[in-house]
Amino acid sequence: MYVNLIRCLSWWSGLRQRCLMPPAQNLCLIALLAGGPAVLTEAAHAEVAVVLNSGEGTISLVDKHTYTEVARTFVGREPHHLMSLPDNSALIVANSVSNDLVFLDPQTGAIKSRLANISDPYQIAFSPDHKWFAATSLRLDRVDLYAADGFKLVQRFSMPTTPSHLTFDHQGQVLFVTLQGSDELVAIDLNTRAVRWKIPVGKTPAGVVMTPDDKFLLVGIMGEDRVAVVDWRRGAVVQSVVTGKGAHNLLPMGDGLHFFVSNRVANTVSVLNARTLKVEDSFAVPGGPDCMELAADGKELWVTSRWLRQVSVIDLKTRRLSHVVRVGRSPHGIFFASHAPR
């Protein structure tokens, strides 16, 4: 009898390592096991923030007004990043280990469909002209280029180690990808579909964004606690701005001028002025701040805290943590429909 008890306990403790959730969410899980994702449509009716729990293969739906997780559902293996379709009709979740894309209702987070055979999608992006869909494969050292209309694979680029974040120039002519393992930034010409240049930018580059004037790329250099400023037409680093330990990801503030920079190791977020290239402010965000989402009214910044299984909500008036939302293991990508302009 004792032996059977031990067996049962160890079994469940193993399961719960991956499926930790409050009792109410367990009921949701049971419903999902019985009825599939359709149940989610009923559960998720308020405006929700969608959070990808990359370590347990689930999405958390968080009520934006009550700051509580209203549902958690399985979406696939290692969902890391998400973005909306160009026409905002669906939200795409990239499951890197499941090799698929899952399309969600951007308002409710309900699963609409699934597209298989998208090999190891990690970061994803559409070109501004909506012609291309690009996906990096961090683990397998590759960048895949798809025709955005129909997601047909057009070309697969082998890269030096760990291609991570990506962005385009405003005309959609060039794709830029950070290479975390080889400390480089690569530019891929989308007309010739060949590498235009590849330059060293600093130790472990991560997030990359284009400035509003389309002149410079801003690259989070994790290993050197700074943001590198790259003149992409010349293919050269022209300046560097120290932000904080583990400078990782960047998000436009929506005013056409500032960017938030998450500093993973320092546990801070910096506000960077893209014109003066100065850090204007910095505030604490616990637990390894990673991806960010800014409310349309500019009042709140939602940040995934990877090491604490939570989303940290920052009141941007006081620059202080105002709410903590418990989510799943290793929360990474975050999205809500009513976000500030990118």
Binding site: S10, S13, G14
Partner: peptide, 13 residues
């Protein structure tokens, strides 16, 4: 395609 996440739970059991 055994995922690392489930692998740990499998290993534990």
């Amino acid at each position: 395609g055994v995922p690392p996440g489930q692998f740990l739970a499998l290993a534990l059991c």
